[in-house]
Amino acid sequence: MAKGSSSNVNSLKNGVIALLVPLPSILFYLCFLSNCGGGGCSSGLWKWCYHHPLLLVNALFFLNVNLLFWLISLVQSSHWMIDLYWTLIPVVLVHYFASHPLAEYNELRSWVVVALTWIWSTRLSHNYLRREGWQLGAREDWRFTDMRQQYGRNWWWVSFFAVYLSQQVFLMGVCVPLYVVHSVKEELKLWDLVAIFMCVSGIGMAYFADTQLHEFVSRNRKLKMSGKAMVPNLEEGLWRYCRHPNYFGEQLWWWGVGILGWGLGVGWSPVGSLLNTMCLAYVTKLVEARMVKQHYRAEAYRQYQKTTSVWIPWFRKSLYKQKNM
């Protein structure tokens, strides 16, 4: 079988797995709604699910994502699926929070938040698939590959905590404001407009930054195939004003979501956004360390670091001024 055909078969197989894997949680939740949709729950299990929406969704996440995804990763020797579902789980969560029998919310705010979450997810999913050449499961995140080498024989159990349990903390943390939006019934406020502006700006910035990066990588790939020297660094478009505009856009999105909950009187709502920023700070450090290890771009990237802001877009510094300070 040709290599391309084999890749397509594997991608199709992984697509089927990705479609089937959330079914246990979906079917369980549909059974719960059929028993408690009207507010009356007879059995102890359904009554517990009715009165504890956050505990229920965390239990489903632990069993269906942490445990089941982890077991599949052991069989496949790859943790590719968690990256795909990072883009999908917030959509599932926002619909869960909106449909739970205890949900109480302003319909216009809910509609806007659901729509924005779908737009965010579509953008990030498109970028993930485009980056992977529209193949599912062709590779796992390079950070997981590095950790696999670092932990060696212990990686099989360490991965449960490092890849999956940690993802639950981050994903549930950043999505708590989506729960707040669907548990407080108040009219729209000024803070809603501020949050929506931040969310839309973040989605737009991340989209354009990732598109510019994709085009740069594609051009370099063609140069390499033709035997020509690759361009060492992307310093055009949004990347001229900061080194990680895609990360900054993603942070704008999540801080906007956090402000939605904060504006409804739940002051700790942005805690997940703060955790996400701290995580991205660490990821930024890893990415930049990886850049300077690539010989063809190391010097150019060091110069880029000296002249260009890390996250927040700003005017570039002059190397001439730095040398004469």
Rank of each mutant, 00 (worst) to 15 (best):
A103W: 01
V194E: 06
L190Y: 14
S7V: 10
G15K: 00
L30M: 12
V21I: 15
R240V: 07
Y128T: 13
L178F: 13
N14P: 01
F170S: 07
L274R: 01
W239L: 11
N220D: 06
L88Y: 01
G237R: 06
R290M: 01
V184C: 12
G256T: 04
M325A: 13
C41W: 00
N106E: 08
A98E: 03
N246Q: 11
G152P: 05
G227V: 12
T307H: 00
I82F: 01
L74T: 05
I26V: 15
N10T: 09
Q294C: 05
G173T: 03
L165D: 04
L165F: 10
S121L: 08
G39P: 09
V257Q: 06
Q135G: 08
L165I: 09
S5T: 15
W268C: 10
L56E: 02
Q76C: 07
Q167Y: 08
I119K: 06
K3Y: 11
C242R: 01
Y96T: 00
I203H: 05
K224C: 03
A138P: 02
V174H: 05
L188G: 14
G237P: 04
A195N: 08
W80Q: 01
G173D: 03
W86I: 04
M198Y: 00
L23V: 07
E250M: 11
Y207A: 02
P22E: 05
G272M: 02
L84V: 10
T145Q: 12
T308C: 14
F208L: 12
S42P: 00
S226D: 15
F197I: 10
E299W: 09
R143N: 09
S309P: 12
H100M: 14
L136H: 03
Q303F: 09
N66K: 02
Q135P: 02
V112K: 03
M291Y: 11
Y320Q: 10
I312Q: 04
V113C: 14
